[in-house]
Computed example of a mutant assay.
Amino acid sequence: MGQNLNKETIAIITTVSNMELFKKTVAFFPVNIKLFVIDGSDGLFGLNSIKFMFKKLRSKKIKWIIMADEDVIFMNTGSIFSIIKEMEEKKYGVAGIRDGGILSWRGKNPYLINPFFCILDFEKINSFYDEKEFIKHNYLVENEFNENLEDLKFNYSTSSLFENYYCFFIWLRRKNISFKFLNATTSGFENDLETTTVFGLNTDIVLYHTWYARTYGIDTKNTDRINEVIKKGVFLKEFNERKIIYLKNHSFSIKKKLKKFYNRVSNFFFK
């Protein structure tokens, strides 16, 4: 399927709020590609993470960005590159999981992606990226996205604006960026109704997504559940051997602290 991929132009990025968990799951991340880690310990995630990603990486020579949460355990990294090859051949700009209709407990918008695992044609999107423009697209138009959703097994809401990052993907669709939707299920683990199994182009298992990363090491039930999934992972490389590029949004942290201070002062004087 086309020429071999130039892995020097592929990068993976994750926003980490739980470093204890990430130090375990990073051992299953693809090797020999750039790995960027955004510090999410101060609450930076979702839309803010996407905006910060473009701010820091826009000048980099990156063709493909793989977005993955820290609670993702990769099983077959070769399948990721097969997906990218198909995206390149068929001109897809985004690949990922529908945020509705795929999982029994996730009945959000099926036209949009949940970026716990998402592949972007970063070079193409970067060529017209405009933060001020895309944040204005946090609205939906009835019947705007004409897709057949009859094969979806579970509930969904085509009018959902549940996530703050939806505006980014709505904007991409309105820019005529083609989406490649991957299959997924939650039936892979006994007594585990949360962990999501994501499939590649065929029936290959690409990864498991455990969800609830922030509870790891805090909530015993979720910690034990996630540890069971980690045992299934394909160990690739020691954490300390990874070439990790850390990214910190210092202005976000300062603004958050100032907001907390302002709220405390306001509550003191106006309670």
Rank of each mutant, 00 (worst) to 15 (best):
D99T: 14
Y212G: 09
F199A: 04
L161A: 04
N18K: 01
S253F: 10
L44Q: 01
N148R: 05
E20R: 12
N76S: 07
L247Y: 07
I170C: 01
S59C: 12
T15K: 09
D39G: 05
K136L: 12
V229G: 07
G233K: 08
Q3V: 14
F116T: 07
I33H: 01
Y139C: 00
R58P: 07
S17N: 10
G200M: 00
L182S: 03
N138S: 12
T220H: 15
V198K: 07
C118A: 13
Q3M: 15
K85E: 15
I177T: 01
F28L: 00
F28W: 05
D99K: 12
K237P: 04
N191I: 06
T14M: 01
L172V: 08
I83M: 03
N126S: 13
D121S: 05
Y165P: 02
S17L: 08
N76L: 04
M53Q: 10
N263G: 04
V72I: 15
K51V: 14
L207D: 02
N109C: 08
K153I: 05
R98N: 03
S41R: 12
I13W: 01
M1Q: 11
N222A: 04
F239N: 05
V26T: 00
L103G: 09
R98F: 07
S251W: 12
N191H: 12
Y262N: 13
D39M: 05
V16W: 00
D39N: 13
K257T: 09
K237N: 11
N222W: 10
F181V: 04
K271R: 13
K24R: 08
A184P: 06
I177N: 01
K232E: 14
N76M: 02
K231G: 11
G200W: 03
F22N: 00
L182Y: 03
I245S: 11
K153C: 12
P115W: 09
S127H: 07
V37E: 03
Y212F: 15
E131P: 08
N155Q: 11
K237V: 04
F235D: 14
R106C: 11
N183A: 13
G233M: 06
P110H: 04
T210W: 02
K7N: 06
K221P: 04
S187V: 11
T9I: 08
L21Q: 02
E150Y: 12
N143I: 03
S59P: 02
Y156D: 06
T14C: 01
K91H: 13
I119Y: 11
N32C: 05
